[in-house]
């Protein structure tokens, strides 16, 4: 049996499978199920800046008394909501750390510097092993350029790095203009890893009922090719641990990511669809293939990948089809 242990963000993981930030990782009970099935780490459900703002707006709408008499009470209630969410998350971290053999990666979703960097320190105090930053915002403003967005994101990263000692990773958008440059910048700022890539909420239109609805929630098994491309391109170029995410539904896909140079794999949709014990199937699939190839451990697997990849390094950088469809 192969040794599946790996290192991600400097953390010793018993296998490469991390359950990504989602409803699966939102509660103690949910995490208990994942731990039982061998999850090496969980990324906790993100603290969403937008959710807090939405709850604040609801509180104002429902609790504001006649003539705004209690506006004093509600004026800064968003801070109370934040404190509440934060205390629930820190309590969850403490309990999970005490009871289960897995690493806990806290996650913050923020779109501005504000006081959010302070949250990172609180999550660290509670015992989080690492922090994942999800800083993407849809660039819908007509006034903000890509350069300004990139600068703003770097400021957030810089701020957080100043306030925590635990390793930090950034969950990137697949739509980033300059993925490689950004990755390099984050590495220079002290970030330890990247998650490639984020999966966004996708609104759709329901033509029958004339309304905007949530679109496809889960990733598709063939979504993996874009992350695979970037894991392949970035792994030899930047000093960052890469976690492949989006479209990893089978052990084979996970193996492709690892061969390409990923340090770890984040799964969500496949666990939602197949249940927490699917994590065991993924581990067994990995183990079987490594046995078949005679690979003892992850170092051997990576060496296998390195030996294979340099033969055609430019393949993953090609974007246009050649003369004949499918020819590479």
């Amino acid at each position: 049996m192969a040794n599946l242990s790996t290192t991600y963000l400097g953390l010793e993981l018993k296998n490469p499978f991390i359950v990504g930030s989602s409803g699966l990782t939102a509660t103690y009970e949910g995490i208990a199920r994942l731990a039982k099935n061998g999850a090496a780490a969980v990324v906790l459900k993100s603290i969403f800046e937008e959710e807090i703002q939405m709850e604040f707006r609801e509180a104002l709408k429902n609790q504001l008394g006649p003539q705004d008499n209690n506006l004093d009470f509600l004026d800064y209630l968003d801070y109370q909501i934040k404190a509440d969410v934060l205390s629930k998350t820190t309590e969850l971290i403490r309990r999970v750390k005490a009871d289960f053999d897995l690493k806990v990666i806290a996650s913050i979703h923020c779109r501005s510097v504000g006081e959010w960097f302070a949250y990172a320190a609180k999550l660290q105090e509670a015992g989080a092993d690492a922090l994942e930053l999800n800083i993407y915002r849809l660039p819908s403003s007509l006034e903000v350029s890509a350069a300004e967005i990139a600068e703003g994101n770097e400021r957030i990263v810089e701020k957080v790095m100043k306030h925590v000692r635990i390793p930090v990773s950034v969950k990137m958008s697949a739509y980033t203009t300059d993925v490689a440059y950004t990755a390099q910048r984050y590495a220079q700022l002290g970030v330890k890893g990247l998650v490639l890539f984020n999966r966004f909420y996708q609104p759709d239109i329901d033509l029958e009922n004339n309304r905007v609805v949530g679109g496809q929630v889960y990733s598709n098994p063939n979504d993996y090719t874009w992350p695979l491309r970037w894991v392949s391109i970035l792994s030899p170029k930047v000093a960052l641990d890469l976690a492949a995410s989006n479209g990893v539904h089978t052990a084979d896909t996970a193996l492709k990511m690892l061969v390409a140079g990923a340090a770890a794999i984040q799964v969500v949709s496949s666990v939602y669809k197949n249940g927490p014990d699917y994590l065991l199937d993924l581990q067994h699939g990995l183990d079987r293939w490594m046995d078949k190839k005679g690979l003892q451990d992850m170092a051997a697997l990576r060496a296998y990948g390195r030996a294979m990849m340099p033969e055609n390094p430019e393949l993953f950088e090609r974007v246009q089809f050649m003369k004949y469809f499918g020819e590479v």
Binding site: Q53, F56, R57, E58, L60, K61, L64, D68, L71, L74, S112, V113, G114, G152, R155
Partner: peptide, 22 residues
């Protein structure tokens, strides 16, 4: 301190504060 600017009105009818980056 961080400077703020006013965004859309919230449920209290008051415009909500947004941070000015940088």
């Amino acid at each position: 301190l961080q400077k703020m600017e006013l965004g859309e009105p919230d449920a209290s009818g008051r415009r909500s504060p947004q941070p000015v980056e940088g």
